[in-house]
């Protein structure tokens, strides 16, 4: 499965049957409350029964994904960050040693090729790019990215860049 998660509406010509697209700005997703219920009480299920429960199974099942997010202090902005925090049901409580660090065991999470488009209104300074790159390197360990590409852009270019990525997916 291929997955597109965006914090703003995107317009694609037609998506193939195995591509799922979610516009986070149109969905209802609450903040994670840190209860660890998804690890200890109802493993693999979040107690908050909102739209996030439709998305994290797709995150787990996808082998190719595109995240589109505004940048905020070197991080994903609120909408994308909220969803990523709500995706911890895809992990187990248990610890493994991975790349010489402690990380969580995963449930049925398919290894992924990730493309991440981050955008801002203005030119993104190098320090902020660097922080975001470091963030994605860390995400790769916890979110099972086997490879990733980060594209920095401006708000006005987001849609055309996203379209380009998805067109490439369809070509291969």
């Amino acid at each position: 499965m291929k997955l597109i998660l965006s914090d703003r509406p995107l317009h694609f010509p037609v998506l193939t049957d195995d591509t799922r697209y979610f516009d986070l700005s149109a969905l209802k997703i609450a903040n994670c409350v840190g209860c660890f219920g998804c690890w200890t009480k109802t493993p693999g299920r979040c107690v908050i029964r909102d739209d996030a429960t439709r998305i994290y199974p797709c995150i787990a099942a996808s082998d190719t994904l595109l995240y589109v997010s505004r940048l905020c202090y070197g991080s994903y902005d609120v909408l994308m960050k909220t969803m990523l925090e709500r995706a911890i049901p895809v992990q187990q409580a248990f610890i493994r040693i991975h790349c010489r660090e402690t990380h969580h065991e995963q449930r049925a999470v398919v290894p992924k090729k990730a493309t991440i488009i981050v955008y801002a209104d203005t030119e993104i300074e190098e320090e902020e790019r660097q922080i975001f790159r470091q963030l994605v390197i860390r995400n790769a360990y916890n979110m099972n990215f086997e490879s990733f590409e980060i594209l920095f852009t401006t708000e006005s270019q987001v849609n055309s860049l996203a379209k380009e990525i998805v067109t490439q997916w369809e070509r291969f």
Binding site: P43, G44, P89, V90, R107
Partner: peptide, 18 residues
């Protein structure tokens, strides 16, 4: 931690999501 909610280790390790 899981035991307190009647969960076995095996149940907590389920690969199933939702």
């Amino acid at each position: 931690y899981g035991k307190r909610f009647g969960m076995t280790k095996k149940q907590m390790q389920t690969p199933d999501i939702e």
